[in-house]
Computed example of a mutant assay.
Amino acid sequence: MSTQPKRTLRLGLIATTVAVVLVSAACGGTTRGSEDDANPAGDRATGQADPDAPLAEGLDVAFLPKQVNNPYFTVADGGGKSATEEFKGRYKEVGPSEAGASSQVSYINTLSQQQTDVIATSANDPNAICGALNSARQAGAKVVTFDSDTKPECRDVFVNQATAEGIAANQVELIAAQIGGEGKIAILSATPNATNQNAWIELMRAELAKPEHSRIELVAVAYGNDEDQKSFQETQGLLRSYPDLKGIVSPTTVGVAAAARYLSGSEHKGKVALTGLGTPNQMREFVKDGTVEVFALWNPADLGYLAAYAGAALASGRITGAEGEKFTAGRLGEYTIGADGVIVLGPPTVFDQGNIDQFDF
């Protein structure tokens, strides 16, 4: 797409934004007036969408993961690249090497200055990048969060792996079955501020409070910061602090692989159960050597793929992010936007010795 049509499209989007901001409307249960600048790209409830609009070609699509060179995000962003190539856009990945709370801000600012059409990001912190994202939206970018959300007013849509309730219930069910429904367990998380991790942990606590899990005690939550060596050391520390620990839940791909590596070479192999969210390629050897019985995950490539198509639909005017809107995401088919602009990929897949060789990611 040439520079002039792209700038014309941006001017039209900005004009629509101004008109929308002048209208007082409700969004996500909060009433926003014309002087509320927390939602500079306009209110989802009053935006005009054309579901029959063609997908624009030549869109600049940038993926900003929590950290680059993280195996999970390498796969997820690869799915975004595949989708972008399908709708003839221009793809790139940028991001920090460490998953700090504010480490993504400078990248967002640069993408905004470059007039990026779609920014797809997994937030390290729900608040730290909000100002930068809203500035990017004011400049014309459409913002899609995936994997880990910001506050709803800081993006256009959020592509969720699965419902938080479903993930929490799944993780508790998997660990409970392995430890016979009783004993001490710990959680090995990613960063302390990760939106998705904290939501899952709170919901796991709620699951564990149910009568059927009354004999399971959550004794600690450790944070490996999505770093392999720190996660390895945190696993070691948990087992030293709690020698009678029966199980560990690690709902992060870096953490669960590091924990599995520690357990596989320790006296705790086969005695301490481990489950979590991991990729089949990371976990295959640990499933086959008996360190891990079962774990779960959605397909991260599909997550990135869906995020890219959602961004393209937003940038093309097919959707605004309002509840009930529908769009087609390539080979994944049709999706419907839920409350607060949330799009759910689907339920997680459970992996074990019987099916792990059927997957390659």
Rank of each mutant, 00 (worst) to 15 (best):
N134G: 11
N170G: 05
G140T: 09
K142L: 00
Q161S: 11
A128C: 05
V159I: 14
Q138R: 15
V172I: 13
A132M: 11
A139D: 15
V159S: 09
A139V: 10
V143T: 13
C154Y: 06
V143K: 06
R155M: 09
I167F: 02
T145E: 03
N170H: 00
C154H: 08
K151T: 15
T163A: 07
T145P: 08
V159P: 12
P126A: 06
Q161T: 05
A136T: 13
P126T: 02
N134S: 13
E165C: 01
E165T: 13
Q161E: 14
N160M: 13
N124M: 07
T163H: 03
T150P: 04
D156Q: 08
S148G: 08
G131C: 05
D125M: 05
E153A: 14
T150N: 03
A128T: 03
N134R: 15
A169L: 01
G140A: 10
R155A: 09
A169D: 13
I129Q: 14
D149V: 05
V159D: 08
R155C: 11
V157R: 12
A168R: 01
A168D: 12
T150H: 02
T150W: 00
L133Q: 13
A139E: 14
A168I: 03
G140V: 11
D156G: 10
S135T: 15
T150I: 07
D125C: 08
D156Y: 01
A139P: 09
N170L: 10
C130G: 11
T163R: 01
T150C: 04
K142E: 08
V144Y: 03
P152Q: 07
S148F: 06
P152D: 09
P152I: 04
K151Y: 00
A141K: 09
Q161L: 07
S148Q: 02
L133C: 10
N124L: 10
N134H: 06
Q161A: 07
V159C: 09
A162I: 01
N160I: 01
K142M: 08
